[in-house]
C-alpha cells in the first residue's frame, strides 16, 4: 500500500514537472529504498525496522496510515532474557524476554562518556533536595517542568547520581534501563503486581501462563517524564487512530451517528 502511494506520488510529480521529471524520479527511488521503521506501542519508544525473515514472511506488518506495527511475524525478534523480577518465579528460565532499551535511549552513551562517568564530581551535594542544574536544563529543557510526581520527585529519585545509563532502586543500587519495573514499582506497587500477573501492560508470544513471552516494560508504553500531560490521556500519549470502517453502500458520510449529539 505504502509502496503504491509512493509510486503514485512519483507519477503525479512527474506529470506536473514535465521535463524536470528525471530528478524527481530519482528522489522517488531514494524514498523507495528507504527502510520502513514502525513504532510498537507509542511514538518515540521501541521501533522496528521492517525486513523479511523468510521470503514472503515479514517480521512486522505496518499500518500505511500511521506507521504503527499491526502484525508480528516473529514476536521474539531482537530480545534478551528479562532478568530476575521478584515474585515472578513460575515462569521457566528464558521464557520471559524483553527488547533491550539501552541502545534506544541514545543519549545515554554521550552522557556517560562526557560527565556522568561513574565518578562523583567535586561539590556533589550530600542531601537529597532538588537543586537547579543550569547545564542540564540547557540540554534537556523538560527537566524544569517535570510532569511526574507533581513536584514531589526529581531527577535523582529515578536516575543514578553518577552512572547515567542506570536507574536507581530504593537502596541506591543501580537498575538497568531494561528493567524499569524495578524502579517504577517502588511507588506504583499495585501496577507492578498487575503487570507481573499479566493484567497490566502487554505481552506477546505464547498465551499459556508458562509460555515464552516478550514482555513490554514500563517505559515502552509510558513516557515517565510526561505522564501527566492531559488528564484524559490515561497515562499514554495520544495517537492518530487508524481509518474508520467502510460506510454502508449508498451512504455518503457518517453524519447519521451524530443525529442526537450530546453537547459538550
Amino acid at each position: 500500500m505504502a509502496m503504491n502511494r509512493i509510486v503514485r506520488h512519483a507519477l503525479i510529480l512527474a506529470a506536473c514537472a514535465g521535463f524536470s521529471a528525471p530528478g524527481l524520479a530519482q528522489d522517488a527511488e531514494k524514498k523507495e529504498v528507504k527502510e520502513t521503521i514502525c513504532f510498537e506501542s507509542r511514538k518515540g519508544a521501541s521501533e522496528v525496522t521492517k525486513r523479511e525473515i523468510r521470503p514472503g514472511l515479514p517480521n512486522v506488518k505496518c499500518s500505511p496510515t500511521t506507521d504503527a506495527v499491526l502484525w508480528y511475524g516473529d514476536p521474539y525478534e531482537d530480545t534478551v532474557p528479562m532478568g530476575k523480577v521478584p515474585l515472578l518465579d513460575k515462569i521457566p528460565e528464558g521464557h520471559a524476554v524483553v527488547k533491550p532499551r539501552t541502545e534506544k535511549l541514545s543519549l545515554a552513551s554521550t552522557c556517560t562518556l562526557a560527565c556522568h562517568n561513574g565518578v562523583t564530581p567535586p561539590g556533589f551535594p550530600k542531601h537529597k533536595k532538588p537543586i537547579p542544574i543550569p547545564t542540564m536544563e540547557a540540554m534537556v529543557p523538560d527537566v524544569k517542568d517535570l510532569q511526574h510526581g507533581r513536584g514531589r520527585i526529581w531527577c535523582l529519585d529515578c536516575h543514578h547520581p553518577t552512572r547515567r545509563d542506570k536507574l536507581v532502586d530504593n537502596f541506591g543500587d543501580p537498575v538497568s534501563l531494561d528493567q524499569p519495573q524495578l524502579l517504577c514499582g517502588k511507588c506504583h506497587g499495585d501496577k507492578l503486581r498487575d503487570w507481573r500477573d499479566g493484567i497490566h501492560g502487554k505481552r506477546i508470544g505464547e498465551f499459556a501462563s508458562t509460555g515464552k513471552k516478550r514482555w513490554f516494560v514500563c517505559t515502552e508504553c509510558h513516557n515517565p517524564h510526561d505522564v501527566q500531560n492531559g488528564a484524559h490521556q490515561r497515562g499514554f500519549t495520544q495517537l492518530k487512530p487508524e481509518p474508520p470502517p467502510q460506510l454502508p453502500a449508498g451512504m455518503k458520510d457518517a453524519r447519521h451517528e451524530k443525529v442526537h449529539p450530546i453537547a459538550h
Binding site: A68, L70, Y72, F207, G211, F216, C221, L239
Partner: peptide
C-alpha cells in the same frame, strides 16, 4: 499456543487472552 493478533498489537495492553 500463540496470542491472537489483536492482543499482540494493542498498544495499551487492554486486551488479555
Amino acid at each position: 499456543g500463540r496470542y491472537p493478533a489483536c492482543v499482540e498489537v494493542c498498544p495499551v495492553g487492554a486486551r488479555k487472552f
